[in-house]
Write a protein that binds this DNA or RNA. Structure first.
Lengths: 272, 272
DNA sequence: CGGAAAATTGAGACTGATCAACCCCGGTGG
DNA sequence: CCACCGGGGTTGATCAGTCTCAATTTTCCG
């Protein structure tokens, strides 16, 4: 555990920036318990930040690096349920529980602040801090529900496109261009998250690359044709089937030709 | 909208029974805003109790009947995300949102109380009422996460067995024996909930029946062999494959022969 | 440099989706 | 009372998308 250095850029997305000295907030006339100066800790790739079932002692804003949330069902089924990046807060959704309901595992060397749970709960009582926190929580449950629907009714290619677009938009949210991203997670993690196998993910990435949607070398991913990816995401039919090697046309690949079928509810495996 | 009659048995599981006059609570020395006497309303089968995206004006404890929660993703994919029975509270998970994030649709004629959202929020501030409410909320997110893992990594038969066991235990929780249940939802709803097609659900139910796990006539379901169902749920291999008509042995069907493989994580499509 | 983990690629099997026909049952109106 | 009708449910045949198993390559790291 080290004393934190005021690393502004990485704090600028933090939920707690307004009340955290580390982020440069001025304590000013705040009452003592309203200002934070949390310690920060470093987790090595593969180490677990918090463990499912263990008491909730703190939450962990990700300063840099990244982590995955892993849920293990009573029967032993494991699944990645979320990816966390700088600005996200590990363990936040458990703030009102006795125990963490997922484990968080660092996917690379990752630095997080350590905000005691009492501080979180105290801040939740103050209306001005409550709202942003709730908004973050809601965004996460929204995301999880979208994932549920995706896994429940969309094809593999759609799900993967969804993830890539999501990662890109996260990337964008924290400044960098959304085009170039470094996947911190393994194919296995991606597969688990999407309810697929790692082979399928690998093949799909190759196919995306072969039709010019992306380029990928190991974990270096470039999104070449965001619109094309969106098309794949939105249209069940638009699963690119073209592993051929030749590149007769160098156009951005796959121009939207079909006016996007509204009401895909009919297409899915089952409706409501 | 009718004036509610004090129908104790149905109120006995209600989250609000301690503070609700309809449930027979004694207002006693409570401060005025702490006691409830909500109106109750009747929804016909198919009518929607609250709609996704609409402002949260109230929550709806189910008095009798049942409903499904339906989520519609931005792209139009629809999926049933939960089934609600007497004692459950429709819209409760949206208590801190501006808008409902799912729609609730009655699956049969259903009576719910109408608890204004302000009352809910007020009660959330009082520690003694906060806890049970949070517990309910957590139970739901736990359930939803289990569903996620189920859809993401379990086989169709396992998922269906899971649902049946879950319905049975819900049934039990509210008094009745868990053996006999009346499915309020259509095959389509079940399929949507489990991420399958209605045909698959139908076939699976037939197979379950053919191997003596259940009997089913229309929507009248009897669970003949709960242990067998659990085995199906827990063991990916134990998918009953035996549509044959003959019934050489009349034993409870499928005695557990294999010692349940621990760590099914290996078996699933992907691990964490 | 060597070994292990991660990723790719291929061939084949199998689950579950799709398409289609039929049935069952309750309701409606002649 | 019965014929018709429509929605929900069943069943069958077929097909496609993914999983599975296995071999190989690449990368990472000591």
């Amino acid at each position: 555990m080290t004393t934190p250095q005021a690393d502004k850029p990485s704090c600028s997305l933090c939920l707690f920036q307004r009340i955290c000295r580390n982020a440069g907030a001025t304590p000013a006339l705040d009452s003592p318990e309203r200002s934070l100066s949390p310690a920060s800790m470093l987790w090595r790739a593969g180490e677990t930040v918090h463990r499912q079932g263990r008491p909730v002692l703190a939450v962990f804003p990700v300063h840099d690096g990244s982590a995955k949330s892993v849920f293990e069902s009573p029967l032993g089924w494991r699944q990645v349920t979320a990816f966390a990046h700088p600005g996200d807060v590990l363990g936040l959704e458990d703030h009102d529980s006795q125990a963490h309901c997922t484990s968080a595992v660092a996917m690379q060397d990752t630095r997080c602040c350590v905000v005691p749970i009492e501080a979180v709960r105290a801040h939740l009582l103050r209306a001005e801090y409550r709202e942003p926190m709730l908004r973050t929580l809601r965004r996460n449950t929204e995301r999880e529900r979208t994932l549920l629907v995706a896994i429940g009714s969309m094809k593999a290619a759609q799900r993967l496109a969804m993830l890539l677009l999501d990662l890109a938009s996260e990337q964008r949210r924290r400044g960098n261009s959304g085009a170039a991203l470094t996947l911190a997670m393994s194919r296995n993690d991606i597969a688990s998250y999407l309810g697929l196998t790692l082979e399928t993910v690998s093949r799909l990435l190759a196919r995306f690359a072969s039709v010019g949607l992306i380029t990928i070398r190991q974990r270096q991913l470039h999104i070449v044709d965001p619109a094309g990816l969106s098309a794949v995401y939105e249209d069940p039919e638009r699963v690119p089937i073209r592993p051929p090697a030749a590149e007769p046309d160098s156009s951005p690949a796959i121009a939207p030709s079909k006016p996007l079928p509204l009401r895909p509810g009919t297409a899915g495996p089952a409706l409501a």
